[in-house]
């Protein structure tokens, strides 16, 4: 396991509303570093800026100020096309509400990111089926998300995030829409993925992660208030 930061932020800020009176500083001058292969947890109360920080790291949101470095490259100034490439190859994102596409089956949802890559349908199906099999959804390939439980939907969302074999997996409040049994399955899965070398960044205000992860970043009102090193660190 290398200790070079695969993710680094430098005075990262994201403000909403230009007028000073209404200005909301969702993320305010946060600098942090997450080494490759580590599991980082962003904790903090609701509204502390966890989701915004994850969005900025995941390149699905542009910062107001500051920089985000992924694999040592400043992605803040990247073009739209370059960011798409990052999201396609480097980062997999699991959204809080999963954001699965209705009307598509489980495997079609998982394989959707591979459509513009030019991978034939049978190969997409095979890759999605392998991943879903691994996540315990081998019998749910052709079910639509509406027919599945919250935990199963989340695993589909995780499979979709992993289908392009990214180096970084980002998950926003992954326990908020699943039951206690699914939470345990999720923790085991994330641990497995970390063992495989993936860098994992999750946001959560849930105490279930209190014994998990290598790094804990505590946020409050958009600011990084505490960094806790649990195992190895840079």
């Amino acid at each position: 396991m290398t200790m070079h930061p695969i993710i680094r932020t430098e005075n990262l800020s994201r403000w909403y509303n230009d007028r000073e009176a209404d200005q909301v500083r969702a993320v305010d001058k946060i600098s942090l570093a997450i080494p490759e292969g580590q599991w980082a947890i962003l904790s903090g109360p609701s509204g502390s800026g966890k989701t915004t920080l994850l969005s900025l790291i995941g390149t699905i949101e542009r910062p107001t100020e500051g920089k985000v470095f992924l694999q040592g490259r400043d992605v803040t100034e990247f073009s739209d096309l370059e960011l798409s490439r990052i999201r396609r190859k480097t980062i997999g994102i699991v959204f809080q509400s999963f954001n699965l596409l209705s009307g598509l089956s489980a495997w079609e949802n998982v394989a959707y990111p591979l459509i513009p890559v030019g991978i034939p349908s049978n190969e997409r199906h095979e890759r999605a089926a392998t991943l879903l099999e691994r996540l315990g959804l081998g019998r749910r390939l052709n079910h639509s998300p509406e027919e599945l439980s919250g935990g199963e939907q989340q695993r589909i969302a995780i499979a979709r995030a992993l289908i392009s074999e990214p180096l970084i997996l980002i998950a926003d409040e992954p326990t908020s829409n699943i039951d206690a049994r699914s939470v345990q399955t999720l923790i085991e899965l994330l641990s497995e993925l970390q063992m495989e070398g993936k860098t994992i960044v999750i946001s959560s205000h849930d105490q279930v992660f209190r014994h998990c992860g290598d790094l804990l970043f505590h946020l409050d009102k958009g600011k990084l208030t505490e960094t806790v090193l649990r195992k190895s660190s840079p």
Partner: peptide
């Protein structure tokens, strides 16, 4: 719009 957001977040380019 929401689906487009999901597509973009999962690596689809604007031209796709």
């Amino acid at each position: 719009r929401k689906e487009t957001g999901v597509m973009r977040a999962t690596g689809w380019r604007t031209r796709d």
